[in-house]
Nucleic acid binder design. Structure first.
Length: 572
DNA sequence: ACGCTCACTTAGTATTCCTTTG
DNA sequence: CAAAGGAATACTAAGTGAGCGT
């Protein structure tokens, strides 16, 4: 059964400002408003956004049906979007090519080049080479030239990199407006290849304090609107040009106090789940045997979320890639194996495949068999529930609990558990390996993957060659009568052992992404406490950016499993 | 109860930066 | 000192969930 298509809005317009509610005077407003809407700031100043440079025509032709055609600037720009992607996998996908070509043809339609209609006759090589040449020229510049250009750019952008919130100067995140190009949707996205048109000042809504100076739009332009929404923390926003009902925001950066505060709350919530987890687990175990199908479905989804760290899985529109989470799993996504083992095979967020077998609770196994009975592969397994219902049930057990908290909780507590095995006799490097191994387990739990780098095989071969060479040297050393033979042999053997570990690690991690959990799921206080206890300098495991992001946790010593709100020592 | 908007977090990949190597 | 390799950061797509109106 196909999911029902959600009604799409005909215009894609969005109200520029929150509905004007009957509010008391601003000065009379309490700091926290009635429900949900919390006032996030009293004053907010910033300098707006940076637009990409205007298009500069290069005059390099498109070759069509063997003939060079010099396009008009706006046509040339679009052809250029494709030319730079000529060698990517996208250019091989029919949907991508069709969407691109539809857009390209529409741009050509009323001009002198409307005869360009057939993708097969389009040859983008000249433009491609032109861009390649520019890249080469850039690369060939001296270090000083590169530095000077970078410095000039940094200087011009400096004032956009920060904003002042309640008197504090803080980093802005994505202050650069997204440049035009072709949409790179992930997986089988029906809109891939569509033209992402240039975002204009007229698209942008500025959110800023009432008393702040409104940043001037580029000369000859206007902002779409200027609002003063103090319950939101975004500085500017616009309707996404591909999924027009989506809204893109310019937000504060990861190191800002706004983000730090919400990060702390997230991890405190995950920690407090530890106090409730036994009750929650007995609740869903009991409810899996319930006569109520809805109750049983709530229980089984919660069980899967807890055991496998699955995502919620909200309903999606048909004009997006077909991906699922626990609530949207369909009968064809699971296979019943012997001994209560289920094979899960579905595409999750970003169309990343979740392909894992798990032995699950016997009652849950039987429930799943019952839920899929008589259903074709495209029918929803959990037909009586959705994430809202699951979350509503969870909130009868713990205030504020939602599905995603389980991912944070299980990721963090897994790290905490695995780090218990750290050997203090080890070197810092070995301790880092322990940390990375724990990080890796979390990444597998959360199914955080990455594409195998193109260079992977060559790199492995090189390491293998190195290893072979070392083995040779060792054999030679054994035969030699060098008086320092013992020492040298030991050194060689150590290098060999290190190389061996490096190779195994590289192979094991070739599809596993450690970064995502480190940035988003692992309570930094677990890591920092571990660093302290085992005398590992934090930069061993956190990059400079992460140390800044987690600055609020830097002096913490904490046990994740003891939830005491007083533990948060560092105030922002 | 449900659909929809809004605001924000989470995610993989592209690009840039920095270090190592030849 | 340049090229290569790998780490770090930038980018932007794609999720979650609260809350509101119907």
């Amino acid at each position: 059964m196909l999911k029902e298509k959600k009604r799409s809005r005909p215009d894609g317009e969005r109200a520029p400002a929150p509905k004007p509610k009957k509010k008391p005077l601003r000065s009379e407003q309490p700091y926290t408003m009635k429900k949900g809407a919390v006032v996030m700031w009293k004053t907010l100043e910033h300098n707006g956004v940076v637009f990409p440079p205007d298009y500069e025509p290069h005059g390099v032709p498109l070759t069509y049906d063997g003939q060079d055609v010099k396009l008009l600037p706006h046509e040339e720009e679009i052809a250029g979007f494709f030319a730079v992607m000529k060698d990517t996998d996208y250019a091989l996908k029919p949907v991508f090519v069709k969407n691109f070509m539809d857009g390209f043809r529409a741009a050509l339609r009323n001009g002198p080049h409307a005869f360009i209609t057939d993708f097969k006759k389009c040859d983008f090589t000249k433009m491609y080479n032109h861009f390649a040449k520019i890249r080469e020229e850039k690369k060939a510049m001296t270090t000083e030239e590169k530095k000077a250009i970078k410095a000039a750019k940094d200087k011009a952008e400096e004032k956009y990199t920060w904003a002042v919130i309640d008197g504090r100067k803080e980093k802005v995140g994505n202050f650069r407006i997204e440049p035009p190009g072709l949409f790179r949707g992930r997986g089988e996205h029906p809109k891939m290849g569509k033209i992402k048109r240039r975002v204009m000042p007229e698209d942008i809504t500025i959110n800023i304090g009432r008393d702040a100076q409104v940043p001037p739009p580029p000369a000859g332009h206007q902002w779409k609107a200027v609002i003063h929404n103090d319950t939101a923390t975004w500085l500017a926003g616009w309707n996404d040009v591909i999924n027009v009902k989506d809204w893109k925001y310019v937000q504060f950066g990861a190191t800002s106090s706004i983000k730090a505060e919400s990060d702390q709350k997230k991890y405190e919530k995950a920690r407090s789940l530890h106090k409730y987890i036994d009750r929650i687990r007995s609740d869903y175990k009991r409810n899996m045997a319930s006569d109520s199908k809805e109750m049983a479905q709530l229980a089984v989804t919660t069980y899967l979320v807890d055991k496998l760290a699955l995502r919620a899985g909200g309903e999606k529109d048909e004009d997006l890639a077909d991906t699922v989470g626990v609530c949207t799993l369909r009968a064809g996504h699971i296979k019943f194996m012997d001994d209560n083992v289920i094979e899960f095979d579905f595409l999750g967020k970003d169309s990343i495949q979740y392909l894992q077998q798990h032995k699950i609770d016997e009652t849950a196994y039987k429930c799943l068999q019952r839920f899929v009975r008589g259903k074709g592969p495209d029918v929803d397994i959990f037909d009586e529930i959705n994430p809202q219902k699951v979350n509503a049930h969870l909130q009868t057990l713990m205030a504020g609990l939602t599905i995603k908290v389980f991912r944070t909780y299980n990721a963090s507590i897994t790290l905490d558990r695995l780090l218990q095995d750290t050997n203090d006799k080890n070197t810092t490097l070995q301790k880092k390996a322990t940390y990375d191994a724990a990080n890796k387990e979390v990444a597998i739990l959360c199914n955080h993957q990455k594409g195998v780098s193109k260079a992977h095989d060559t790199q492995m071969e090189k390491l293998a060659a190195k290893k072979k060479d070392l083995a040779k040297q060792i054999t030679a050393m054994k035969k030699s009568d060098d008086k320092n033979k013992k020492k040298k042999l030991a050194a060689l053997k150590e290098r060999q052992a290190k190389l061996e570990i490096q190779m195994n690690m590289k192979e094991e991690l070739k599809t596993v992404s450690l970064g995502t959990s480190k940035i988003n799921y692992l309570d930094p206080r677990i890591t920092i406490s571990w660093c302290k206890r085992h005398e590992v300098p934090p930069p061993t495991v956190f990059t400079k950016a992460l140390i800044e992001k987690f600055h609020w946790a830097m002096d913490c010593e904490m046990d994740f499993r003891f939830c005491n709100m007083d533990d948060v020592k560092t105030e922002i």
